[in-house]
């Protein structure tokens, strides 16, 4: 199992927010993560100051490089934090993975792990999560998120082309009345 990367700090039925242990150590957009038995797809991430009312200020005027800014102000690493939101797309019950919303939301302080290729492969045998993502209320554009998630998943497949075609066909059925959206997603699926 991979090392934990974050901890749940806010959770509801459809999503959970997590704070990373290390600043900027965020999972990529569209990555599959897991906390407890719940699977989520990273749909939003942000880095900001700890206190909502206190904005970071520009510090690099006299520094030679970006890294030097952090070196001369080591407290920054403690004052800033990286957070991401994952959309809940499924859960595990026994050995089976169900791509439905979980019966219970994630637990606060639950550890979050990045899913390994085997797990991603197992999860992506089914495309039920696409419908959850299409209907989720997201900050990032849905098209971008779905395309990012599928690109990520296709990377671990033996035949990534066949995987993308199958996913595309599923999307074509789901978006049968919204061709423009479908076209935008398909246009973003190409890796090369």
């Amino acid at each position: 199992m991979s090392p934990k990367i974050a901890e749940v700090i806010e959770a509801d039925t459809a999503s959970f927010v997590a704070q990373c242990y290390e600043l900027y150590e965020l999972p990529p957009l569209g990555a599959l993560v897991k906390t407890g038995d719940i699977y989520g797809i990273v749909c939003h991430a942000e880095t900001a100051g700890m206190e909502p009312g206190r904005k970071p200020i520009a510090r690099g005027r006299d520094e030679a490089s970006e890294a030097a800014v952090y070196e001369s102000s080591p407290q920054l690493l403690k004052l800033l934090r990286s957070e991401f939101t994952a959309s809940a797309v499924g859960y595990q019950d026994g050995n089976k993975i169900y791509q439905y919303l979980p019966p219970q939301p994630a637990r606060i302080h639950g550890f979050i792990y990045l899913c390994q290729p085997d797990e991603v492969k197992e999860f992506s045998k089914n495309f039920g999560f696409l419908n959850i993502l299409i209907n989720a209320a997201l900050t990032a554009p849905t098209e971008e998120l779905i395309a990012a998630a599928l690109r990520q998943m296709s990377g671990v497949q033996e035949d990534s082309h066949a995987f993308l075609v199958a996913a595309g066909k599923e999307l074509a059925n789901l978006l049968s009345n919204d061709f423009i959206k479908l076209k935008n997603i398909l246009g973003r699926l190409k890796i090369k």
């Binding site: 082309h161 066909k169 074509a172 049968s176 076209k183 246009g187």
Partner: peptide, 26 residues
């Protein structure tokens, strides 16, 4: 076609991927 807009603004059929996805679905 499932969506009339498909006929109005056709997709890029030179892209084999798009053609493959759309055929039999949309």
């Amino acid at each position: 076609v499932t969506d009339e807009r498909l006929a109005v603004s056709p997709p890029d059929v030179n892209d084999p991927f798009i053609a493959e996805v759309l055929s039999g679905t949309s």
